[in-house]
Amino acid sequence: MRLEPVADPGLVRLIGLPALALAGMVGVASVLAMLAGANPFAVLGLIVQGAAGSKFAALETLNRATPLIFTGLAVAVAFRAKLWNIGAEAQLYAGALMTVLIGTQLGLPGTLALPLMAGAAILTGGLVLLGPVLLKVRLGVDEVVTTLLFNFIMLLFVSMLLEGPLKDPMGMGWPKSEALPRDARLPRIVDGLRLHWGFGLALISAVLVWVIQVRTTLGYEIRAVGQNPQAARFAGIPVGRVMVKTALLSGGLAAMAGFSEVAGLKGSLTLDLSPGFGYTGIVVAMLALLHPLGVVVSAIFVAGVFVGANSMSRAAEVPTYIADISVATALLFMVLAILLTRFRVVRG
C-alpha cells in the first residue's frame, strides 16, 4: 500500500473520519464491557450519566478537566516545537511542591501567598524542563528519555520530602504535607458549587497560549522551529533560544496543574496528587490537534470519560481501567483518522 495526498479533502472526510475514530473508541469500550459480562449499552449509559448526568457530575468533570487542560497545554506548546516533553508529571509535582512550600512555610497572608505560589510554581516547572532541553540543545541528548526518567526522580524526591522535612506532624504517619491555610486556597467560582478558580485560570491560560501562538513572534518562531529546524535556523531564528522559551512555557503550564490541584482542590500535597495527569496530557493535546482552545474541549471530554467510568464501576462490575483503555484507543484511532483526512491509501 501507498499513501497519496488528498488534494481537496471534502467536509465529509474532515469531519467523518475523526467522528469514526470516536465511534471506534465507543466500539472498543462496548467490547470491553461485554468481556466483563455487562450490557454495553447500560455501561455506556452509566458512564455518560456519571460524567454529565447531574450538576454534581458535570462540575466533577470540570474539576477533573482542570489539571488536564494545564498538562494538555504544556504538551501542545512543546510538541508544536517538536520538543517531546513527556515530563509534565514531574513538572506538575514541582509546581505542587513550590505551592505547599510557600503556602505552609512562609506564613504570608493569602492575597500575597497565592500569586507568589503560582509564580514560584511556574518558574520551578519551567526550570525542571529546562535541564533536559539544555541537554538536547547543547549535547544532542534525546529529551524523550530524559524527561520520562525525570518523572520517576521527581516522584521519589517528593516522597523523600513528604517523609522528611515536609511531613505533616498531624498526618497520622501518612506521607502528607501540612494543609494550606484557608486564605491561601483558590476560592470557588460560584459560592456553593464545587468548582474552584483553577478551572478559570486554565481557561485563561488556554486563551493566552492561543494568543501567543497566533499573535506573537514567539508563536511564529515556535511553529517554524517545529516544522523545520534547519530552515528556521537558516531564516535567522535562534533555534536554541526558542527551545528554551518553549521549555519555560511548557514546564510552567504543567506546574500550574500542580498549583491548581493543591491550592484549588486538595489543600495539601500527597504522593497520589496526580494519577498520571502528565501522561494523559499527551492524549489531551493530540486529540486537540495541539490547538490550545481544542485542548479545553478534549480535556473536558477525557475528564468525562474518567469521571464517568469511575462512577459506572461503582454500579456495574466493570473495572475503571476501561477508561484508560478507551482513552488510549481514542488517541491511536484519532492520529490515524487525522492522517487519513490528508492522505488516501492506494494499492501498489
Binding site: L32, W84, I86, V144, Y279, I282, V283, M286, P319, Y321, I322, D324, I325, V327, A328, T329, L331, L332, V335
Partner: peptide, 19 residues
C-alpha cells in the same frame, strides 16, 4: 509519529493488562 504511537501503545498495553 513514532513518539505519539509509542506512548499510545504504552498506555494501551498497561491499561489492558490492568483491566
Amino acid at each position: 509519529s513514532q513518539h505519539v504511537v509509542g506512548l499510545g501503545i504504552t498506555l494501551l498495553a498497561t491499561s489492558s493488562a490492568y483491566y
